[in-house]
Design a protein around this nucleic acid. Structure first.
Lengths: 223, 223
DNA sequence: GGCGATCCTAAACCTCGGTATGGTCCGCGC
DNA sequence: GCGCGGACCATACCGAGGTTTAGGATCGCC
């Protein structure tokens, strides 16, 4: 994109993609790592889910290759744990003797793919490519959202309230009546909101509100 | 063009849900139909994909139960055909001897569930409930969208162009410069747009543009 | 007690949005 | 030819948006 120092987090996803592998079989870890490295992908392998959790996840698009049978914890349960811990990384399952219900459960829970051993290298690489791409996208969105939240956090309670009403389409005068203020006060809050949120126009602000999921808690529709 | 008798399609999804079953085995059709009717769901069964396609789909939340092995066409291929024909109905697969790759393919293509025979009645009912609910939602969204498209279609080319620029956050004067018009003309277009689209406020219009996916074809960013 | 943040308001002033009213020009179809 | 609709523009007017300047009030914190 454009070369610009801009915001610090803008370059975050510039780090190179990483593929994580969890498998208790060292030879599997070895051969998968080699496979990924052979196509220029960074790979990190772990013998257990626990080891993986010790590792500090980089801020880069990544994915996780998981055997359905893990040492202590099933792959599916680990998938659920990650989700519960709010760690969202695309998962590719592999299995030697999985069944269909497992597959369905994994896919419903958002797995990218589910490969049966033995699989062709190319299938694995295709799955990884898709997973990395998915993660790149979701990271991009998450980043935008978190920056929006950061900005939104700088608003005072009043400003947030006014923002909700403004983006819902009410006029200043209606907002003033709604929350018992003078119109001029609303205008001033509004000005602060635009500046703090970095919105260049009202449509801009509306889109931000959409992303933030702002439906006026004290709901109201327009004229 | 103001006084308008609501819209006819608003009550569309009021029809009762329907479950479609395609299976070449009459006893399967029979028992599934009975199962669904026993819980008060309308069911329609077909012996082949072809028969199903003859049937005029109702405008109601519905779903399709499909055996992976269909008479002439595999269930997966039929799923692909439906998608290609732009028929979007949630599909629940069932199979006696399916494998994991099939399952993965079906789920990736958007299947709601994939049940292995024999399955528990309750599992099927749960899947159907989820599928119907999914269809209800997507129908709701599709309906809103199609009404928006209808309104959008009444705009003249110029008005569409102005709408894109307005919702992107440009001021009238900037829009005028952008496309070589007098500011007053832009204002007039703008007025027409608001009336024709039924937007009560600028934020309203912005949200419509979002849903319509309007990014100015002749792209331009603001100030 | 002083400091800063939040919240509120007023007057003055300017820009922008929006709606008439009225008119020109062009292309299309009957 | 005529009517019609789309596109365009001008003048005038008014309401809404937005900033600046200049306050006042409350509350928590050092």
């Amino acid at each position: 994109m454009t070369g610009r120092p801009a915001s610090p987090s803008t370059l975050a996803t510039a780090e190179e993609p990483v593929v994580f592998v969890i498998d208790d079989d060292a030879s599997v870890r070895e051969s998968l790592s080699n496979l990924f490295r052979s196509v220029g992908l960074r790979a990190e392998a772990f013998a257990s889910a626990h080891d993986f959790l010790q590792y500090k996840l980089p801020n880069a698009p990544s994915c996780l290759i998981l055997d359905i049978r893990l040492p202590r914890l099933s792959g599916l349960d680990f998938q659920a744990e990650l989700a519960k811990a709010d760690i969202h990384i695309p998962i590719i399952f592999m299995t030697g003797h999985g069944d269909i219900p497992m597959t369905v459960r994994a896919m419903k829970a958002g797995a990218v793919d589910f490969l049966t051993k033995p699989f062709r290298d190319q299938d694995m690489l295709d799955a990884v490519t898709a997973a990395i791409e998915r993660d790149r996208n979701s990271r991009g969105e998450a980043m935008v959202l978190s920056e929006l939240h950061t900005l939104f956090a700088t608003l005072t309670p009043r400003e947030r309230q006014v923002m909700a009403l403004v983006t819902s389409g009410l006029m200043n005068k209606q907002i003033a009546a709604e929350i018992g203020l003078a119109e001029i006060t609303v205008k001033i809050h509004r000005g602060h909101i635009m500046r703090k949120m970095g919105a260049k126009s009202l449509p801009d602000l509306v889109r931000m509100a959409e992303l933030l999921g702002i439906g006026p808690a004290s709901g109201r529709s327009q004229t």
